[in-house]
Amino acid sequence: MERRIFLAGAALAVMAPAIPSPARESLGRRTLVERFAATLSAHDLSAFGALFADDYVNHQISAAAPAPPTGLTPKQATVGYFAARLAGMPDLQVAIESAVTADDKVAASFVYTGTHGGSYFGIAPTGRALRFTSCDIFLVRNNLLAEHWGMGDIAGILAQLRAR
């Protein structure tokens, strides 16, 4: 199996120069959201944080989500938010339902699954299986996530956490 993966990767590397530049850039943006999901599923916050530009801007505002801590850059606050998610769901897995690219943007619909095994949104562990989604749009600059607009199902998460 590893040999097939290696051969496929080698073939892509040889063919990459033949792929027109816009198609390569689109593939790169798609790969970026795949790495977003993969680094979170691997619980690798260092690699996750490396996906974001230092001057990253998060345009998402949610009345249901806690306000980001003061004194943090948007990049630090985003990594901290996902660190809290991983602490609340130690077996978190992230999958992509769908992704599209256009110009310098990539959009994806993510599905998050895991077990509520740690404090999350201030709620003590319940042991419940959780499943929720988010739809996110990213501006990509220099192969990094530079800006974000999105909507996550925070109300759905809270409903699952508080279910009796």
Results as ranks from 00 to 15, higher is better:
Met1Tyr: 09
Glu2Phe: 10
Glu2Lys: 13
Arg3Tyr: 10
Arg4Thr: 09
Ile5Lys: 09
Gly9Ile: 09
Ala10Asn: 08
Ala11Asn: 12
Ala11Phe: 14
Leu12Lys: 11
Leu12Val: 11
Leu12Asp: 08
Ala13Pro: 13
Val14Thr: 12
Val14Phe: 11
Met15Thr: 15
Ala16Met: 14
Ala16Val: 14
Ala16Glu: 14
Pro20Ile: 06
Ser21Glu: 15
Ala23Met: 14
Ala23Asp: 15
Glu25Leu: 15
Ser26Glu: 10
Leu27Thr: 06
Leu27Ala: 15
Leu27Met: 15
Gly28Trp: 06
Gly28Phe: 04
Arg30Phe: 04
Arg30Asp: 07
Thr31Arg: 15
Leu32Pro: 04
Glu34Val: 02
Arg35Phe: 01
Phe36Asp: 00
Ala37Phe: 03
Ala38Leu: 08
Thr39Tyr: 02
Ser41Lys: 03
Ser41Leu: 07
Ser41Trp: 07
Ala42Val: 06
Ala42His: 07
His43Met: 04
His43Leu: 04
Asp44Leu: 06
Leu45Tyr: 04
Leu45Thr: 05
Leu45Val: 08
Phe48Met: 00
Ala50Leu: 11
Leu51Lys: 00
Phe52Asp: 00
Asp54Tyr: 09
Asp54Thr: 14
Asp55Cys: 07
Tyr56Gln: 01
Val57Cys: 03
His59Phe: 04
Ser62Ala: 05
Ala63Glu: 12
Pro66Ile: 06
Pro66Met: 09
Ala67Asp: 12
Pro68Val: 03
Thr70Gly: 11
Leu72Lys: 10
Leu72Glu: 10
Thr73Ser: 15
Pro74Tyr: 01
Ala77Asp: 01
Ala77Asn: 01
Thr78Asp: 05
Val79Trp: 00
Gly80Ser: 05
Tyr81Lys: 05
Tyr81Ile: 06
Ala83Asp: 14
Leu86Lys: 02
Met89Gln: 14
Met89His: 10
Asp91Trp: 08
Leu92Ser: 02
Gln93Thr: 11
Gln93Cys: 09
Gln93Arg: 12
Val94His: 02
Val94Asp: 03
Ala95Lys: 11
Ala99Gln: 15
Ala102Trp: 10
Ala102Arg: 11
Asp104Cys: 10
Val106Trp: 00
Ala108Thr: 03
Ala108Val: 05
Phe110Tyr: 13
Tyr112Gly: 01
Thr113Pro: 06
Thr113Glu: 09
Thr113Leu: 08
Gly114Ala: 03
His116Lys: 06
His116Ala: 01
Gly117Val: 00
Gly118Arg: 05
Tyr120Phe: 13
Ile123Pro: 02
Ala124Lys: 12
Ala124Leu: 11
Ala124Phe: 05
Ala124Pro: 05
Pro125Gln: 05
Gly127Trp: 05
Leu130Trp: 05
Leu130Thr: 07
Leu130Arg: 07
Arg131Thr: 13
Phe132Lys: 07
Thr133Gly: 12
Cys135His: 10
Asp136Met: 13
Phe138Pro: 02
Leu139Ala: 15
Val140Met: 03
Val140Arg: 00
Glu147Ala: 04
Glu147Gln: 03
Gly150Ile: 04
Met151Ala: 08
Met151Asp: 07
Gly152Gln: 08
Asp153Cys: 02
Ala155Phe: 10
Ala155Leu: 14
Gly156Arg: 05
Ala159Pro: 07
Leu161Pro: 03
Leu161Cys: 08
Leu161Ser: 06
Arg162Trp: 10
Ala163Gln: 14
Ala163Thr: 13
Ala163Lys: 14
